[in-house]
Nucleic acid binder design. Structure first.
Lengths: 209, 209
DNA sequence: CGCGTGTTTGATAGCAATCAAGTTCTGTGG
DNA sequence: CCACAGAACTTGATTGCTATCAAACACGCG
């Protein structure tokens, strides 16, 4: 799994000079909940999901991570979420200590602060969605986010309906119904249950915003 | 959710040497949404509420801040939330630049990282609550948090029902009903609508966890 | 082809939102 | 100190959205 140290310009991708490329098969765990958080990961390809279990067994998805995203930032010393590969994927992993050694403390701190800040903003936006939005609005926003992430005509959803449901605080049936509804209304067009195209971005944005 | 940053001896309370004491009357705004985020605040007395408006006018409360909490940490340069005093209150305000000058860059960065980390953890916990919990569970947890914050026999709620509702993603009527229900069940005892005592902490914890 | 998994669709139930009065609290002025 | 008005809170009746329960349908794989 520890294949090679990727040689890349450090100015652009700080992970390259301090990290190790790792590959994970679909379904494999990058790290577990409550495990010490030592490594930071930058996703290179594929998609990763973070999740945590509530005391009553219900699951909350923290987020979905795509190439370029930094993963492994956690509040405190231990991972509050588990991370699992949704597709086969590769990531550059770097211990915090090595980042500091290679980049200098200041740059390493800046890197971590930026990642933490981005995660925080994401969490805040998610709070707003869960606190204020209807099922239809949540799904609309989710699909739009996925589309914006991939900037491709045909958007691929690497996660299943259950993952979407747990992310949005809904049930799998409701997610499915809302997708059907958006489809019927002509806002999106699902070619298969995991791929779609955006048909009416304006209406979708109006719903999700 | 309402995790306090532990009060610390003044040697480690950097605000004292870099900040200015400010007082705010009840209802006064510490800062507005979308305003540049320059100052960090440490609450000394009173209670502050952060909130933001969604595009459709619905309001989300970010959190409630008590003495010892650091406020003003935001993702990016501008405040994503507005902050308003719920009671008359005092806070020590310090510009980030001054903190760095007085404490040294490293200590200032650590201070900010710690506050950011705490806020992030709070937001994550809040996501879990909004995504997974019922109205009754949310209110139970909220009351328990408030009680833990104040560590007093009689707990005072500085915020109104509407604030609680917007924080928990519920309506004011539902919050009121759940409080009545917890009261009837003997888990809490409201002496006035803003003060209560915890009667059955175990049951309350079981509900809220 | 059959099986298992994942998704969609349908029927029903239940929780929380909404709509609508009351009731209590609070602050203000007589 | 009391009276009053307005705000905040509680309670009640009803609606509606989403969860739940149940079954059918698609798809991938041995």
């Amino acid at each position: 799994m520890l294949t090679a140290i990727a040689p890349q310009p450090s100015a652009v991708r700080p992970f390259a000079c301090a990290g190790v490329v790792m590959t994970f098969a679909r379904g494999e765990e990058l790290y577990a909940q409550a495990e010490p958080a030592d490594l930071l990961y930058e996703i290179v390809s594929g998609c990763v999901r973070t999740s945590r279990l509530a005391a009553d067994g219900r699951r909350q998805i923290g987020g979905f991570y795509y190439p370029g995203d930094v993963l492994g930032i956690e509040a405190g010393g231990d991972h509050r979420f588990a991370a699992e590969a949704l597709t086969d994927c590769t990531a550059v992993a770097a211990p915090r200590s090595r980042l500091a050694a290679r980049l200098g403390v200041e740059a390493a701190v800046r890197l971590e602060t930026e990642a933490l800040t981005a995660e925080f903003a994401r969490a805040q936006d998610h709070v707003l969605v869960l606190g204020c939005k209807t099922a239809c609005e949540r799904v609309a926003r989710f699909l739009l986010d996925a589309a914006d992430r991939q900037c491709a005509a045909v958007v691929d959803l690497p996660m299943g309906r259950q993952d979407i449901a747990d992310f949005l605080g809904l049930t799998i049936e409701t997610v499915s119904r809302m997708i059907t509804q958006l489809q019927t209304a002509g806002l999106v067009d699902f070619t298969t249950c995991r791929t779609f195209t955006v048909r009416d971005r304006v209406a979708l944005t109006r719903l999700g915003a």
